[in-house]
Amino acid sequence: MVGGMKRVSFAEFGGPDVLQLVDAEEPHAGPGQVRIAVRAAGVNPVDWRIREGQILGAHPVELPSGVGLDASGVVDEVGEGVEGVEVGDHVFGEGSSTYAEFAVLSAWARMPGGLTFEEAAGYPSVVETALRIIREVGVQPGQTLLVSGASGGVGSAVLQIARERGITVFGTAGAANQDYLRSLGAVATTYGEGWVERVRRLGHVDAALDLAGSGVIRELVELTEDPRKVVSIADLDAPEFGVRFSGVAGSVPEALAEAAGLISRGKLHIPVEKSYTLAEAAAAHIDSQAGHTRGRRVVVI
């Protein structure tokens, strides 16, 4: 088949088993877009939420659908009206159907020097989300931020960005990830029985972020004493407590530019915990849904 490629696709909503590796037509860069030969694609919780049909309001899906929003790779087509990037450039960014050999990006930045394609693919959505929720929760330098479920990709970014801004971070994670949180500058404690008291002993909480959706919104409101000082990216019931659920991306190009700056200055590093092949996409989703990630998961082409 001419102009063909491999991509991960699903023809119906459901569990990881609906993901299939199929032959597909190559996409092409439209106006304001670039196409890349994908080297790696980031695995995000939003990927399996879309696959399950959970968030069709924010992410309408036409079946059969590709999978993936984040990727890194080599530019091989530049769309109309696009400036400042050319064929052969190494970029990372956001687009659609990125678990594939070729993908179209609608927002991108040049990869900072010293970053591998695998590492770069782990940043786009994660850093955009981290920057957005720190802004939305309104936490200021000198204040304290509690991050519930802090060891995954978004948590890793939030901890480092907050530290860079002079914000004190308390992070909760499993016992195995306590040292990891401390290495990112957080005051760490475990979740589970008695966690609210453990946090209280650490000090006053000015603002809180729920990254894990483990049913802790009521307690976070208790700790901050103000539902407006809590933001969740994982608990769809958050609004019942007067808490903002943040699911819509802001300016991705701006976030990517800021991420590139932080990475270049050595202020932000998110490790890749595990890599998968395109054929292992279902396994990547199973692992992502199980949680307890330290850093990022990526699909490598």
Rank of each mutant, 00 (worst) to 15 (best):
V154H: 08
G291Q: 01
L220A: 11
R39M: 03
E254C: 07
G242I: 00
S72D: 05
M111H: 00
S246G: 08
S214R: 02
T172K: 00
S232H: 01
F170Y: 06
D287M: 10
G93P: 07
G295Y: 05
E193I: 04
S148I: 04
A238I: 00
I50L: 04
A208M: 01
G295A: 10
A284S: 10
V199K: 02
E128D: 07
S65F: 09
V67E: 09
P141T: 04
R296T: 06
V300Q: 09
A120D: 06
V104E: 09
A11S: 11
T168W: 10
A290T: 13
S125Q: 10
H28R: 10
T116N: 02
R7V: 10
V299I: 04
R244H: 09
L223D: 11
G81K: 10
S125E: 15
V8N: 04
G166N: 04
R7A: 06
L262T: 02
H292E: 09
A24K: 14
D179P: 05
V18D: 12
A11K: 12
G155M: 01
G88K: 12
G113C: 15
R228Q: 01
I263Q: 09
E197C: 05
K6A: 07
E280L: 11
R265F: 09
S214Y: 09
T168L: 06
P271Q: 14
Q20R: 12
Q20G: 03
G84P: 15
D76H: 15
A40F: 04
F92A: 12
A255R: 05
A260K: 14
L63Y: 13
G73S: 11
G15R: 03
H292V: 15
V139H: 02
Y180M: 05
Y180A: 02
R51M: 08
F92D: 03
L278A: 13
V300E: 08
F13E: 00
L56T: 15
I286L: 14
V8T: 11
E52K: 15
T98H: 11
G203I: 12
E225K: 10
E12W: 09
G66D: 03
S183P: 15
A175W: 04
F241Q: 01
F117Y: 12
P112E: 02
E193T: 06
V104P: 11
L262I: 02
A283V: 08
A103M: 13
R228T: 14
V158C: 05
